[in-house]
Simulated scan of single mutants.
Amino acid sequence: MFPTHRPRRLRNHPQLRRMVQENAVTTSDLVYPLFAVPGEGIAHEVKSMPGVYQLSVDKIVQEAKEVYELGIPAIILFGIPEDKDNEATGAWHDCGIVQKATTAVKTAVPDLVVIVDTCLCEYTSHGHCGYLETGDLSGRVLNDPTLELLKKTAVAQAKAGADIIAPSGMMDGFVQAIRQGLDAADYTDMPILSYAAKYASAYYGPFRDAAESAPQFGDRRTYQMDPANGTEALKEIELDIAEGADMLMVKPALAYMDIIWRVKQATNLPVAAYNVSGEYSMVKAAALNGWIDEQKVVMETMLGFKRSGADLILTYHAKDIARWIQA
């Protein structure tokens, strides 16, 4: 073979390397997460996520305008309500914080795609993603009663102007229940981005600071997936597709690129990778200490997600990535 075949021949010039590059990250790949809180003029930095803020609706609108001007096509909204209760009222009430933020953003930046996280953990007083069995301190959520709350939440979010519903609670049958609720409310064209393979991960820690959604007892292992399992993810996506999912998500992303690849190979639907809070914060901490080149590490990671098959990447790095691409 050698010296006839010399792969280095195609690496000799920057432009040549660019010409034969197999994958590329563009701003069209990106979705930027935002956290909405009640009040006005609020921009509270999340201590464990440098550069990420809890924002009041007026600040969310400002951020949405900046995101759109950077060429990022979409945001995903999470909400922190003023009050929490066992019924997750803030999730499905017409005046819920995500509903207010959605309407404000769509009024100010109508061409920006607004994805809404459709879950209950930020809104329940116990921090779990649905109804709990009475007196159960293990965190076991009652599946079917929770589906009714998710239906109400999705319809309220659609009424507020959301472009995509993204259920993340990993309840059995949640895609079907939400699809039925949306269709019954005449939102048949509303797409569902299902958190189809969401793992019970230690990488979520900083997010729970940002969303103020840590469970008050127990954990979420009775409904989120075991990190040891891969084939189970294919079962989950098969069920969600059958129930009407339009797009699929794998969360987290960095330690689950094999799952992204397997999901992409198993379906012809768009696949999203969520570059979660812990992944973001580790990079930020190392960069702030001068241990790594932040831009190079982030862009290499994004290329890894694309190479593994991701069509969309939800990432807190999105604005920086857009600026780096433009530069």
Rank of each mutant, 00 (worst) to 15 (best):
T4R: 08
H5E: 04
L10K: 10
R11I: 06
L16K: 14
L16R: 12
R18N: 15
R18G: 15
M19Q: 11
E22R: 15
A24M: 14
V25P: 09
T26F: 11
V31G: 01
P38F: 09
G39I: 12
A43Q: 13
H44N: 15
H44W: 15
E45S: 11
E45I: 08
V46R: 04
M49Q: 05
M49W: 06
Q62S: 15
A64P: 14
K65W: 12
L77C: 09
L77W: 05
F78M: 10
D83I: 06
D85H: 09
D85A: 03
N86H: 14
E87K: 12
A88Q: 05
A88R: 01
T89Y: 03
T89A: 02
C95V: 15
I97D: 01
Q99V: 08
K100C: 08
K100I: 12
V105H: 07
A108N: 13
A108K: 13
D111F: 14
D111A: 14
D111R: 14
T118N: 08
C119W: 01
L120C: 06
E122C: 07
T124C: 02
Y131A: 11
E133L: 15
T134W: 12
D136C: 12
S138I: 09
R140V: 13
V141F: 01
T146A: 00
T146V: 01
L147S: 02
L147D: 03
E148R: 11
A158M: 04
A158W: 02
K159P: 01
A160W: 02
D163W: 08
A166V: 02
P167V: 10
S168E: 01
M171A: 09
D172Y: 04
Q176D: 04
Q176E: 04
Q180E: 14
Q180H: 10
A184P: 09
D186L: 13
M190K: 03
L193C: 01
A202L: 07
A211S: 11
E212Y: 04
S213E: 02
A214K: 07
Q216P: 09
Q216K: 14
G218I: 06
Y223Q: 05
N229A: 03
N229K: 03
N229F: 07
G230L: 09
E232A: 14
A233P: 07
A233T: 12
I237R: 00
I241E: 03
M247G: 01
P252M: 12
A255M: 12
K264Y: 08
K264T: 10
K264E: 06
N268M: 07
L269T: 05
L269S: 06
L269W: 04
A273Q: 01
N275Q: 14
S277C: 10
S277W: 05
E279Y: 05
Y280S: 00
V283M: 05
A287C: 09
N289A: 11
G290D: 00
I292R: 06
I292N: 08
D293A: 11
Q295N: 13
V297F: 14
V297A: 14
T301S: 10
L303K: 10
G304W: 08
R307N: 15
G309M: 05
D311M: 10
L314W: 00
A318T: 02
K319F: 05
K319A: 02
I321Y: 02
I321Q: 02
A322I: 04
A322F: 02
R323H: 03
I325D: 07
A327R: 11
